[in-house]
Design a binder for these strands. Structure first.
Lengths: 168, 168
DNA sequence: TCCAAACCCTTGGATGTCCTAGTATATTGC
DNA sequence: GCAATATACTAGGACATCCAAGGGTTTGGA
């Protein structure tokens, strides 16, 4: 999006916060802003790797989730809960995946309100290939040290739990 | 978006990765996924606080950036670089902020290609109030411990630097 | 001097996310 | 058994982000 800046804009923001007498919250502000930016960078990398497969991250996540389900099928509401996104986002993703013949919608056997999302053979194949690509090109070179990875998993896990993501 | 899940879906994903022989990259995958989810949670909180002010996070960031500029004005391309978003995103944000009379566009005095974004008096006032709200309601209760905040700033700072965000 | 290359901003299009409503199906309770 | 409530999915709308392209302005080398 541009060449490297001469200075870290988030560190600058933190200094501005302190300079304005908000020193108490300057560090958390910087940490939160850094999380936002890091997510943006990672998402960009992931989307870049997935593009050749005709997938976006949202669609890949759904495909991957289905590929781990016993039967290769899940109710839409289940997928929405597990992916932690709004139901309409799942509808959107399924619409496009279905158009690409990677999944199909089928009625739930006993509950008429529910729609099952089912992986097709191509969907399963593509999920596997995309996962390999992501493992090789993103997760395998995350840029985080092993210790930092463990720390992130723990700290962000605690945060997500406190935020009400899960009970466990 | 839903009630808490009985189990951490990211920890489950990590286990799935390991079960499929991708143990090498399971942890980084989990860490990255956790960052994505954490960003989503934080963004939701921030947007919730800003809503009463008629602001979104994108617009707030621009307003805050301008409020820290000496003259309360910045070229669009400068803002794009500092916020690290695509120029068209800035155009979009400025369109809406201008419609709300929080900023105005003015021509650059010497470079005819450049447009300056200038904070209005209301814009400056609103930025201050929104910042106070965010400090009180989000940054002040980030949910991260002091040590974790320092750790996040360091680790994510290194990551962003390695990703080419800044030289410093 | 003058034209090509570089730079700046905007428009239009594709995606994703969320929210609000609306329709259809299940469940509950009287 | 039937009405009221709850649940599941989808349609439409508001926003944000990015990319690709287009039109105007500067800069720089021939």
């Amino acid at each position: 999006m541009g060449s490297p800046l001469p200075r870290d804009p988030i560190a600058d923001a933190q200094r501005n916060w302190e300079r304005h007498g908000w020193g108490e919250v300057a560090a958390p502000m910087a940490a939160i802003t850094a999380i936002m930016r890091t997510q943006q960078i990672l998402l960009g990398r992931i989307e870049g790797v997935l593009k050749p497969y005709g997938l976006t991250f949202a669609r890949y996540e759904l495909l991957a989730l289905l590929s781990f389900a016993r039967s290769g099928a899940l109710p839409m509401n289940k997928a929405s809960a597990l992916l932690q996104v709004h139901p309409t986002s799942v509808t959107n993703a399924v619409d496009r995946l279905e158009k690409a013949a990677l999944v199909v919608r089928s009625p739930h056997p006993t509950d008429g309100r529910t729609t099952l999302i089912e992986l097709t053979a191509e969907g399963r194949t593509l999920a596997k290939r995309a996962t390999t690509a992501l493992n090789n090109e993103v997760f395998g070179h995350s840029g985080f040290g092993d210790e930092d990875v463990e720390h992130l998993i723990r700290v962000l896990g605690d945060f997500r739990k406190a935020a009400g993501d899960f009970t466990d």
